[in-house]
Design a protein around this nucleic acid. Structure first.
Lengths: 232, 232
DNA sequence: TCAATGGTTCGGTGGGGACCGAAGCATCAT
DNA sequence: ATGATGCTTCGGTCCCCACCGAACCATTGA
């Protein structure tokens, strides 16, 4: 009886068109802002806020506040699995993310920029992905990474000033920072800043005017390919 | 867009407490009369009739008229799987305190039950674990298993009807089904059904009246020990 | 044929919840 | 400071739908 009630409660949450629309968007596995989800569902922000709070309360969603924004994502692979199995019943296929629309506006800023003192945008994500893919970085806690021994070697070879980075004991060493354009975490903290410094020192990237936008140089593109296996 | 609407419609159907109660009863894989389902859900016959018609229209249920009675059953294993995956979410949400309270009332259900047409609960997990541990079953893709050559031998020795199982080419042969009480996959699909049939045929387990709960016989316990190396 | 039983259709009622306007807080920008 | 932006809370309206009473149809058994 209790399990039946729980079943109906979960299903009822997914059964509202607005909430289903949000969940469907979140099926891309990334985090989206509350206003993004509201706009996509065709409802006002205050209505969406209520929906998101209810789904968060039911552990369907996880939330993370960053600045003025509040990012929501699916709470677990099990949630995605349940949604997918419901979609299978309807004979519908999972919708891949259509990001072409968002890509058009301000492409340079989305490509590469600073996030305070570290790299963000597609380049920041590419660097982070490369480090994790090669086993240089592994998760430590919910919002941090830790550098593996191979990661230390890699950074030394690259010329990243790890000693200075480690002296800033008051700040996180390898922090996850959520990227607002890519909606995925990139590396920040002392290590992220040290990596960005390396990019500047070696002439791989340079700041534009007085903006956060960065220009990736030709040698920078080559470096991204050779050191990080990224084609940008 | 259309796929989102379809998702919300299916979920909304499962989101009503009365309908969820009916679906939960039908999870035993058998057919039940409309009045049976109505009584179980605690609603009048005419209300239940409306619910059943809607779920039938949405292809969640299949119906068969026999005399004055009308029997309803789940339309497909996919429906059962979707319900099971929602139950997994609901079970995860429950706090340990209330969870144990709910399960203390029905420990047998958690121990052994049918999930549509195959074994679930601790016994279902034990069988599945044994098969993988002995190398009879190995992962194939994200949600399937495949039977190894030693697995075929093992099934033959056990008396599992593999030929019939293979003839059901429209359904998955060895599917992973997430168990809501154990939170781990057990084996479903045609092979899962064939294994469950073997348990019934050899008198290792028997259905309890009007429920998904199974009783494991003494010989069943011995068989679990000798064939599957499980102490239950 | 006439009851008895199982199931469905119809009409009216009531409650829950989805929705938005307005207002209140935060954070970021200039 | 001042405004702009993102998110939330509060209050009130409105609509959908679950529910039941009553009547109707179909099958069975006498």
């Amino acid at each position: 009886m209790t399990t039946v009630n729980a079943l109906s409660e979960i299903a009822a949450l997914m059964g509202d068109p607005a909430r289903a629309s949000m969940l469907s968007l979140l099926m891309d596995g990334r985090a989206h802002t509350a206003s993004d989800l509201a706009h996509n569902a065709g409802i006002t922000a205050q209505t969406a806020s209520g929906h998101l709070a209810r789904m968060f309360e039911a552990d369907l969603l996880a939330a993370r506040a960053q600045g003025r924004n509040r990012f929501y994502r699916l709470a677990s692979p099990e949630v995605a699995h349940a949604i997918e199995s419901l979609m299978a019943l309807a004979g519908a296929r999972a919708t891949p993310a259509s990001k072409s629309a968002a890509w058009r506006r301000d492409p340079d800023l989305r490509f590469c920029r600073t996030c305070y003192d570290h790299l963000a945008g597609q380049v920041g994500i590419a660097v982070t992905d490369s480090l994790t893919r090669q086993g240089h970085l592994e998760p430590r806690g919910p919002r941090d990474w830790q550098l593996t021994s191979s990661g230390e070697l890699f950074c030394d070879k690259l010329g990243v000033d790890l000693d200075t980075a480690r002296q800033a004991s008051s700040r996180h060493f390898a922090r996850q920072c959520l990227d607002w354009s890519e909606r995925r975490p990139h590396i920040s903290g002392a290590l992220g800043a040290a990596i960005a410094d390396t990019f500047f020192k070696r002439g791989w990237a340079e700041r534009l005017r007085r903006s956060r936008t960065l220009r990736v140089t030709d040698s920078g593109r080559r470096a991204l390919g050779s050191h990080f296996g990224a084609t940008v």
